[in-house]
Amino acid sequence: MSLLNFRHHVFAGAFIAAAFASPAHAEEPRIVSVGGSTTEIVYALDAESDLVGVDSTSLYPKAAREFPDVGYVRQLSAEGLLSLRPTLILAGAEAGPEAALTQTEAAGVRIVKLEEGYTPEEVAKHIEAIGAALGREEKAAEVAGIFRADVKAVLAEVAQIKTHPRVLFMLQAGRGPMLVSGKHTAANAMIELAGGVNAVSEFSGYKPFSPEAATLAAPDVILMASDTVEALGGAEAVLSQTALAPTPAARDGRLVSMDALYLAGFGPRLAHAIHDLAAELHPEHEFAPLPARPWTEAE
């Protein structure tokens, strides 16, 4: 083979490889959604047909679990993201590490990163931001408008409640130690939105469970993710723990469990999650049901 032909073959091969790897040459949108609430928004905007991958926290709706999994939201790799040849990555605030996103963006992939925020208005802004990124502004405006109205309705009811139970949120972090939620967390925000008071306010974030501190916090209600309660042997087993047994929550048998993503995901189902948690925290009040929405009724 002549030198000229050799160079021609090398150039052609490199061009084909680049065309295959570069999203700029993709004919159709190829979206990777990273973050459970981010994926929920994609479905709420009827854009799931453009998805080619999600992260491992994208558990709702169930159909999202059928897509290729790029890994845990906080432990992404550029190689894993780029292997799906995405044209757009929608990244929740918790997505990382930053180096993986930077490398992916340097490869020519557009990334829309959402801002962290544990307020209903932040969720509405996330819906609008994803709508803009997907070219579905009109649909996003519709969904955000309905979402805001639902939140307004449930918060108006919560504002009427005179009782404010002390709530202790406990989290099992994988195989690690039990953690409790302080300030500036999704759990803290949900407790307050539902008319409760976080029983732990001495620190921010999540810290390892201290039996003595749990007893001193004297919670009226223990709040946990459903899978954590199941892993610990059920509500009775949880409330009978030495640290919790002396608390008002154990005395009154008040343990509330909810699906983790529903409870703390801060996605388009937030208004309904606030409603359901508020109903558990305030059994003396009969909350008016919120209308079912397509994004709350998906399988």
Rank of each mutant, 00 (worst) to 15 (best):
M1N: 13
L3S: 14
L4M: 11
N5E: 15
R7Q: 11
H8T: 13
H9E: 15
F11L: 14
A18C: 02
A19R: 13
A21Q: 15
R30Q: 05
I31N: 05
S33E: 03
S37Q: 09
S37E: 09
S37G: 06
E40D: 12
A44L: 03
A44P: 01
L45T: 04
A47V: 07
V54P: 03
D55S: 11
T57L: 03
P61E: 05
A63S: 13
P68V: 07
V73A: 04
Q75C: 02
L76A: 06
S77H: 05
A78H: 04
S83H: 04
S83A: 14
R85V: 11
R85W: 03
T87C: 00
I89P: 01
L90F: 06
A91Q: 01
G92N: 01
A95F: 07
G96T: 07
P97S: 06
L101G: 08
E105D: 05
E105G: 14
G108I: 11
G108H: 08
G108E: 13
V112F: 00
P120L: 06
P120W: 13
E121D: 15
E121P: 00
I127P: 05
I127V: 14
E128I: 10
A129R: 15
A133P: 10
A133F: 04
A153C: 05
V154W: 09
A156N: 08
E157L: 02
V158T: 08
A159V: 00
Q160T: 15
I161A: 08
H164P: 00
H164S: 13
P165T: 11
R166V: 04
V167P: 06
V167K: 07
V167H: 07
L168C: 01
Q172D: 00
A173E: 13
R175Q: 12
G176T: 14
G176H: 11
L179H: 08
L179A: 06
V180K: 02
S181L: 02
H184M: 01
A186H: 02
N188C: 08
A189I: 09
A189G: 05
E192N: 13
L193W: 10
A194M: 09
G195S: 08
G195T: 13
E202I: 04
F203C: 02
F203H: 12
Y206Q: 00
K207V: 14
K207M: 09
P208K: 01
F209D: 07
E212N: 02
A213K: 10
A217G: 07
A217T: 10
D220A: 00
L223Y: 08
V229N: 04
E230W: 08
L232I: 11
A235L: 01
E236V: 10
L239S: 14
Q241M: 15
T242Q: 12
L244Y: 10
P246H: 02
P248N: 10
G253P: 05
R254T: 12
S257L: 03
M258F: 11
D259T: 06
Y262G: 00
Y262A: 05
A264C: 07
F266V: 05
L270E: 09
L270G: 06
D276C: 00
L277T: 10
A279V: 04
L281S: 09
F287M: 08
A288Y: 06
L290A: 12
R293A: 04
W295F: 07
W295K: 00
